[in-house]
Nucleic acid binder design. Structure first.
Length: 569
RNA sequence: GCGCCUGUAGCUCAGGGGAUAGAGCAGCGGACUUCUAAUCCGUUAGUCGGGGGUUCAAAUCCUCCCAGGCGCACCA
């Protein structure tokens, strides 16, 4: 906890002739609890003082002997480290009080100062089904959205729909040749998907289809009526289908600005690069040569005059800066597009935009089958809806088995099932590929969302049964925790604010997710060793305050991951 | 061919300069008349892909090699 660090930093700084901030940067958390709670390593001092680190640690300890702080009450040298031990009573009082007062704001802060952060996430390609592959951007991006908002930033969620591009040419060709309006109405997304797959099968035998598709897209770009009406039709049907998934997952966006939103700005972008003289004609196309920066060239306009993805992305970046004046602009997009973003940011820089450095690509690995990658074109894909439905069904079965008397089984099943799917995507380091495995998706034991939700539900259950009078704040009670399991839990709860900040700075919700597993684990240890309701009144009140703080940490943390915490399950 | 990412226990993964490398799953053995056993406790398991280097200190940083993934001008 920050207060403890500062206290120790101030005591130590004059003794070691360093700035307080410098000392704070060195303090670390020891690997074992018996080594104390915060450690000062003496290695760096060894050079200036010309003494071995263990001697320095010992001397510092002697200088501090008998001295205590408000939140720490003991120091001890151990090898090259000077270890500080917290004062359990004062410390737990401090932590419990903070959680008690801040409630659903515990872990939040105002460090963002209301600055705008745009977050581009989900961004599915219209007219393609919403597969499990799309869930990563959606879930990671949405969590970052919530985390930044909790830190006082004004998060602006943008769904950069892939609603423009050659794929629409392909769809129009396919629909013209093989499509039937009745089937389309029946299940639009599924049907468009089948047409898309069929196109890619037929094009093998008849490569001319590709040219036809390109020409349809060209017509679309030049506003030709028939093309535009197809496009509007397909786009709307797809949007309707996405809406139900987003609402089920509780995902929201400030803006559905798809690629087509920037069509009016493309001309301006082309003019900009020409004014800056960074572009040139090559084989009829307009390109920017990035060889001096060790990057492949960027193509802004094809020889047939049509624009490309990166042209629209440049327009989008400029639009976002001009409209929102962001402090940061995040792109939660798969790692396979890393090169694209390197090029994009470099071109922004060449255009003289110093805010290019505020743009961040937040990459993530792909979801693959054991046998290889998923492919929309080849029809090798698992639909997200199916995954969600099966996970919820499995949760329903388990609830039926474990808690048949539960009043609202359906909402608990939904929370647990959806939580499992989300947590699977959030708990591991983004950049790694995930192997899709039904068994893992449907497993609710061990390091899963259900583990955290279960701890939360257990706490709620105890609180329901407690005497209401004992659920009040009480200074004495808050300071009387002393068992090892209690203190360890308190220390774990104290870390939430730091974990939220770490997650934001590294753009990794997985840090928060892992932390919540730790909290749930420490709670379970406490639960099995420290009875709450059957203990003496004062201890009971203390433990109620402790589990209430734990409940708050679990609920607040899960909320930032977009996962709901049922009170019963 | 060039570039980016990944390689840690049988499997899935944490840890990303510091004190004895940790979890979950699987296996084995225990704990429900007691606050929900979706839990807990114990136990087995590792030349941290390999070589070299930087450092008082390397799983962590640099370099080379190996393996896998992903990219590299008219897709997004």
């Amino acid at each position: 906890m920050q207060k403890l660090r500062e206290e120790i930093g101030e005591v130590l700084a004059p003794l070691v002739e360093m700035e307080t901030d410098q000392v704070l940067g060195l303090l670390e958390i020891p690997p074992e609890p018996e080594f104390g709670d915060l450690a000062f390593p003496c290695f760096t001092l060894a050079k200036t003082l010309k003494k071995p680190p263990p001697v320095i640690a010992k001397e510092l300890s002697e200088k501090l002997s008998g001295q205590t702080g408000r939140l720490w009450d003991k120091t001890e040298p151990r090898g090259p480290y000077l270890n500080f031990y917290i004062a359990p009573k004062a410390y737990s009082h401090e932590v419990l009080k903070k959680a008690w007062e801040e409630q659903d704001q515990y872990g939040h802060s105002d460090q963002g100062n209301g600055q705008n952060v745009t977050i581009d996430y989900s961004s599915p390609n219209i007219a393609k089904p919403f597969g499990v592959g799309h869930i990563r951007s959606t879930v990671i991006g949405h969590s970052l959205y919530l985390i930044y908002r909790a830190l006082g930033y004004n998060s602006i969620g943008i769904n950069h729909l892939g609603d423009w591009g050659t794929q629409f040419g392909k769809l129009i060709v396919a629909f013209n040749r093989w499509g039937e309006e009745d089937k389309l109405k029946d299940d639009p997304v599924e049907y468009l998907y089948r047409l898309y797959v069929q196109f890619h099968q037929e094009v093998e035998a008849d490569p001319a289809l590709d040219d036809e598709a390109r020409s349809w897209f060209k017509k679309l770009e030049s506003g030709e009526k028939e093309a535009v009406s197809y496009w509007e039709h397909f786009r709307q049907l797809s949007l309707d289908a996405y809406a139900s998934i987003y609402s089920r997952l509780g995902i929201e966006f400030e803006y559905y600005h798809g690629e087509s939103h920037y069509n009016q700005m493309l001309e301006r972008v082309i003019n900009m690069v020409q004014e800056q003289q960074i572009a040139r004609e090559s084989e009829g196309a307009l390109i920017i040569d990035l060889e001096p920066y060790n990057l492949p060239p960027v193509m802004l306009r094809k020889k047939d005059g049509a624009t490309l993805y990166i042209t629209r992305d440049l327009a989008a970046a400029i639009y976002r800066k001009e409209t929102f004046d962001f402090a940061r602009s995040l792109y939660v997009v798969g790692a396979e597009q890393t090169l694209h973003f390197q090029q994009l940011f470099k071109v922004l820089e060449l255009l003289g935009f110093n805010w290019a450095s505020q743009c961040v690509h937040v990459p993530f690995g792909m979801i693959r089958f054991k046998e290889g990658r998923m492919s929309t074109r080849a029809g090798k894909i698992i639909l997200l809806e199916e995954v969600l439905d099966r996970a919820v069904a499995m949760a329903r079965d388990i609830i039926e088995e474990k808690n048949p008397d539960l009043a609202d089984k359906e909402s608990a099943a939904e929370a647990v099932g959806l939580g499992a799917v989300r947590f699977g995507d959030l708990s591991n380091d983004r950049v790694k590929n995930i192997e899709f495995d039904w068994e893992k998706v449907l497993d609710f034991s061990g390091e899963t969302a259900a583990y955290i939700q279960y701890a939360h539900a257990r706490i709620c259950s105890i609180i329901r049964k407690a005497e209401p009078g004992l659920m009040d704040w009480n200074d004495e009670a808050a300071g009387c925790l002393q068992k090892e399991e209690e203190i360890t839990l308190v220390k774990t709860l104290a870390r939430l604010p730091d974990k939220v900040i770490d997650s934001a700075e590294s753009f990794k919700p997985s840090i928060l997710a892992r932390y919540l597993i730790d909290v749930a684990r420490e709670f379970n240890r406490f639960y099995h060793n420290c009875p709450v309701l059957s203990s003496e009144p004062e201890i009971q009140q203390a433990r109620l305050l402790l589990i209430n703080a734990t409940r708050q940490v679990l609920a607040n943390g899960l909320a930032l991951l977009g996962i709901t915490a049922p009170e019963e399950m």
